[in-house]
């Protein structure tokens, strides 16, 4: 090897390649709005779990001496109490746990169903693809919210079935995205290489296609979490979702709306938490989209 070549090799040894994911992470952490979203979300999650430890009150305990009092430091009712004398501080935290759990679990359900369905349809192609996507088209025309209400009515107002009902409807868009990406990925050399080495279809789909089409799914899922939280809030607001004595932000907002003129804090505080969460996820979603798809300059 020539001395110049030797020098090049040595120089290269000092360099470390930057993976696409690492580059995306760099772009993401440089995005101030997205990082603010992450911080906000961490704060809300921490509140959800730490608040019950800070407060002396139980979420179901009634303080009959202090019914519907405004936020005060007296007796540690920092967010005030509701019409039954229950402490709002711990109830908002309980609602946060339910709303966040519904958002995350349901999104996970939709992502798993949608990714597998879309990848199988796209990879199989031909008639299988046609039939599978036509089913998605038909379900798409079913007004989403109505479908959820029907499913919730059907399966009863059980909180876990609320997860399932929303997840069963929200996977459709993910299936569409993944199918499109899979169709493109099918034409690439790495898939051809895997196939020519004799990999079975299941391995090609799970090991080679799914990891490569997951970028847009991540972006979509980040925006799906707030959508799901919102759907749950809508349902609970209408009396079709989470039931007492459990609670969620939607249910708290609904109860706050009922006593809007006498106790506005019962509406404003849970509403502020819900809005902050919506902002956080939207900022994170926007940041991820910009980070994973740097072409888009607008």
């Amino acid at each position: 090897m020539t001395p110049e070549g030797q020098a090049l090799v040595e120089a290269a040894a000092g360099l470390r390649g930057e993976s696409l994911w690492r580059a995306a992470l760099g772009r993401f952490s440089a995005n101030r709005a997205a990082m603010a979203g992450v911080l906000l979300l961490v704060a809300i999650t921490a509140f959800a779990f730490v608040a019950p430890l800070l407060s002396p009150h139980d979420m179901e305990a009634n303080d009959w001496e202090r019914i519907q009092i405004a936020p005060t430091t007296e007796q540690s009712h920092w967010f005030g109490t509701d019409a039954n004398g229950r402490d709002l501080f711990v109830r908002v935290a309980a609602g946060a746990r339910v709303s966040l759990a519904i958002g995350l679990i349901t999104t996970l359900v939709s992502v798993v169903i949608g990714v597998l369905y879309g990848a199988i349809a796209g990879y199989a192609g031909g008639r299988t693809d046609q039939v599978m996507m036509r089913i998605v088209d038909v379900l798409y025309a079913l007004p989403l919210f109505f479908a959820i209400i029907i499913l919730v009515t059907v399966f009863g107002r059980n909180i876990f079935l609320v997860f399932l009902a929303i997840g069963a409807v929200e996977w459709l868009t993910i299936a569409r995205i993944v199918r499109g990406q899979t169709l493109a990925a099918k034409q690439t050399e790495y898939v051809e290489a895997a196939r020519s080495l004799g990999a079975p279809a299941s391995r090609v789909v799970l090991r080679h296609i799914v990891p490569n089409v997951v970028g847009p799914v991540i972006v979509f899922s980040t925006l799906l979490v707030p959508t799901v939280i919102l759907v749950e809030s809508f349902l609970s607001f209408l009396g079709l979702g989470v039931q007492e004595p459990q609670t969620s932000w939607g249910l708290l907002i609904s109860q706050g709306t009922a006593s809007l003129d006498s106790a506005p804090w019962l509406l404003v505080i849970p509403a502020a938490f819900l809005a902050a969460t919506m902002f956080a996820f939207n900022f994170i979603g926007d940041g991820l989209r910009d980070a994973l798809d740097p072409r888009d300059e607008s």
Partner: peptide, 15 residues
């Protein structure tokens, strides 16, 4: 406008 749902704006507007 996108982040804050009508579930929140409607009662707040009323308030």
């Amino acid at each position: 406008g996108i982040a804050v749902p009508s579930l929140i704006t409607a009662p707040l507007l009323t308030l």
